[in-house]
Design a protein around this nucleic acid. Structure first.
Length: 706
RNA sequence: GCGGUGGUAGUUCAGUUGGUUAGAAUGCCGCCCUGUCACGGCGGAGGUCGCGAGUUCGAGUCUCGUCCACCGCGCCA
């Protein structure tokens, strides 16, 4: 292998830097020019800089405080050059430009500016401008076509494909090596870039106009035949997970994780800019048995005692606020030993943020800016601030606290219309409008769309969630039809008609009973109907803040209260007699019906915290034992503080429109929480257990079957 | 813990009412082929039908159990 000289290295690195700078500059100009077009100006003239500046200034006033020294530029900057030079760095310019529909991801080149000994270019870096150049490439055999004489190889690296040509007439030795290759062999190829001949171009390849005539070919490593075909969309997920490292070779996979990286870096940059300090909190920590199950880690030094993996860095970030750090963030791994779902993994990542001396508004603003920056980094311009809805309104209109606002179909209260109705069941329900609900879901055009069979299916659907049945009214040309009509007075029917604005062809579903049950199944029905009628625009991002959460919830079948958010959330009205009427400074961010994250203002006063613990039925002794360190901390001048956390995996799942969170996690677990790649969890040596003072009481299922 | 769907060649799938030697495509191996890019042609290998019982003269097919994967319920302060 030829050793690259220091001079060559320098040249390459300069070339790469220049390339990057030129790319940035070019894109800045493009944006500028687009803006100029938009304003009706033909060319980028001397006014352009000022215009762009103003445009940016309008959009990102708050950012300019950080970077641009002084604001004197905004009226008299003569041109783009000066404007750009007035910015401290290109990356800062870039971050500003993201505000004007700018896609960070596109311009950050895949090419690294650092030296690589084994290649001069990535595959798709090569184009017609390189014709005649000698290049060195490294990668995998994506496919090969051996014609007996000439051999074509599609070489692949993370950037894409390029065609190598091995012609015995050009180089017999390279051709001989090429005749041995198979799919997924690792090659290092040297050769000359050549324009493809007339009619030989491949428009489907980015590098389809050129090819590399190989004169030196090294098989760096061989590969067994692949256990599955890369790029085949039908391959089972289990085999992909078993060979995840092969699965990751697929273009779509690389792009997903590239985007994930961009998003994480954008989050870091935004929070850094706002003065947040990134701090790592412990992974080995104390078990807090409330909430989800903990993953436990036995201690060797303290036989019989256990660490727990954190379900979230909640208490530590509060302690950082007591520690005076003022603003903290972390891209934190969290662990919950609960059953999995398509959007739930036992270990997951959240962007965790906490700040001191802040109001709920301050926290929400940071969260919005953060999401805006992340979406911008991924090529999406989202509107901030987000809409808000109270918890109560969300429950009443959408049946849950994470409404999907990509479609309408609001639930409408009709309990009053059943007060004097002739059905004893409905009348009884209507007697207690505080705890019961009768909700109507009008589906415009639903009568035409839903056959008797589909309605039966929908009834089966809601029955699974506690509905006794599914009453409905069809709006026909000759009037309303449906079994419940006979119970209602003409007046009630007329009121319903106008309240629901019924039109011919509509169908109205009714849910009646305990409010929690009705909310639940009617909310689910709402989504199910929207899905069936294809009412959901998959390309929309509908954010909403759900605010004013109740502090407590009466546990089903139990006497004591349960914290709806968590017990460290600041209650708004702790002295309220009816504990269920106590609200909290808690807020959730919901995107397209999925809870992306949430946060709250925390309790920073000892007496309030103690009061909340006691309402939750946690004794002083228990509180001391579990949260003593927090209670202690609150005694020493804890500042008012609050924060939020965003589920990063879910966020990436929504951003990449994947159906499963596993698609955005490099090495995910299966639904039974195992890793098909490493076979974790697995039994351990008796000696290891002995050292930990642990004896397994029950034989594993596979052995116990005997 | 519960409900649903699936498990047949390396992969993706078909397989009739229970009835000869379980098929296809692709991949793999061998030979041929100098402009392909889903290269092409000829030939070949490859299966404990997830596993275990049962019913039957006979089971990929029917029954029961079990394991694995996925979707959902419970659970996830």
């Amino acid at each position: 292998m030829a050793v690259t000289s220091a001079r060559q290295r320098d040249q390459r690195s300069i070339a790469a830097d220049t390339y990057q700078n030129i790319t940035l500059f070019t894109h800045a100009c493009e944006i500028a020019s687009e803006y100029a077009d938009h304003r009706g100006t033909d060319a980028i003239d001397s006014h352009f800089g000022a215009m762009l500046f103003e445009h940016i200034f309008d959009n990102v006033k708050q950012r300019l405080e950080f970077g641009c020294r002084g604001s004197q530029h905004h009226t008299d900057t003569p041109n783009l050059q000066i404007f750009i030079h007035s910015i401290p760095s290109l990356s800062f310019l870039l971050s500003i430009l993201t505000k004007i529909k700018f896609v960070f991801a596109i311009i950050a080149p895949l090419t690294s500016t650092t030296e690589m000994a084994l290649r001069t270019h990535y595959c798709t870096d090569i184009n017609e401008n390189n014709v005649g150049e000698r290049v060195e490439l490294a990668g995998w055999v994506n496919s090969y076509r051996d014609h007996g004489g000439i051999i074509f190889i599609d070489l692949r690296d993370k950037t894409g494909l390029i065609q190598l040509v091995c012609d015995p007439a050009d180089n017999e030795k390279a051709h001989k090596v090429a005749s041995q290759i198979r799919d997924e062999y690792v090659l290092i190829a040297k050769g000359t870039v050549r324009r493809r001949g007339e009619g030989l171009e491949n428009p489907r390849l980015k590098t389809g106009k050129i090819e590399v005539v190989v004169d030196e070919l090294v098989i760096e490593n061989r590969s067994e035949p692949m256990p599955f075909t890369l790029g085949d969309p039908n391959v089972g997920e289990d085999i992909r997970l078993k060979y995840r490292y092969l699965d990751l070779r697929q273009k779509e996979m690389f792009e997903t994780f590239q985007l994930r990286s961009k998003a994480a870096i954008a989050a870091r940059n935004l929070l850094d800019k706002h003065g947040f300090l990134e701090v790592e909190t412990p992974i080995l920590t104390k078990s807090t048995p409330e909430g989800a199950r903990d993953y436990l880690v036995p201690s060797r030094e303290h036989v019989g005692e256990f660490y727990a993996l954190p379900q979230s860095p909640q208490l530590f970030k509060q302690l950082l606020m007591v520690g005076g750090f003022d603003r903290y963030f972390q891209i934190a791994k969290c662990f919950r030993d609960e059953d999995l779902r398509a959007d739930r993994q036992p270990e997951f990542t959240q962007i965790d943020v906490e700040m001191s001396f802040c109001t709920q508004e301050d926290v929400m603003k940071v969260a919005e800016e953060l999401l805006h920056a992340i979406f911008a980094a991924c090529g999406h311009e989202i509107e901030i601030p987000f809409n808000r809805i109270t918890y109560r309104e969300s429950m009443e209109k959408y049946g849950n606290d994470r409404p999907d606002l990509r479609f309408g179909l609001e639930l409408v209260d009709v309990i009053d219309l059943f007060e004097d109705c002739e059905s004893p069941i409905f009348a009884e329900i209507a007697k207690y409008p505080k705890i019961n609900r009768i909700k109507a879901l009008k589906v415009p055009g639903g009568d035409n769309a839903f056959s008797r069979k589909i309605i039966k299916e929908l009834e089966g659907f809601v029955t699974r969630f506690g509905a006794k049945g599914l009453a409905y009214i069809q709006v026909k040309e000759d009037g309303l039809k449906g079994p419940i009509l006979k119970f209602l007075s003409d007046e009630a029917i007329e009121t319903m008609k106008s309240r629901l604005d019924l039109q011919i062809g509509d169908i109205v579903f009714f849910g009646a009973g305990d409010r929690k049950v009705v909310w639940d199944y009617m909310g689910r029905l709402r989504s199910e109907v929207a899905r069936r009628l294809d009412m959901i625009d998959e390309n929309r991002f509908e954010f909403v803040w759900v605010v004013d959460f109740p502090m407590f919830e009466l546990e089903e079948g139990a006497l004591h209260l349960k914290a709806l958010h968590h017990p460290f959330t600041m209650p708004k009205n702790i002295d309220e007699e009816d504990a269920e009427a106590i609200e909290s400074d808690a807020y959730d961010i919901v995107l397209n019906g999925i809870e992306l994250g949430g946060g709250s203002i925390r309790i920073h006063k000892l007496d309030i915290q103690k009061r909340v613990f006691s309402l939750l039925g946690i004794s002083d002794e228990e509180a001391e034992e579990k949260f003593g360190f927090l209670l202690d901390a609150l005694k020493f001048g804890a500042p008012p503080h609050g924060g939020f956390a965003l589920g990063f995996d879910r966020l990436m799942m929504l951003l990449t429109k994947k159906e499963s969170i596993r698609d955005v996690i490099a090495f995910p677990k299966t639904q039974s929480a195992t890793c098909l790649l490493t076979h974790a969890p697995s039994p351990v040596d008796e000696a290891q257990l002995k050292e930990l003072g642990i004896r397994i009481r029950k034989q594993p299922k596979s052995d116990a079957a005997e």
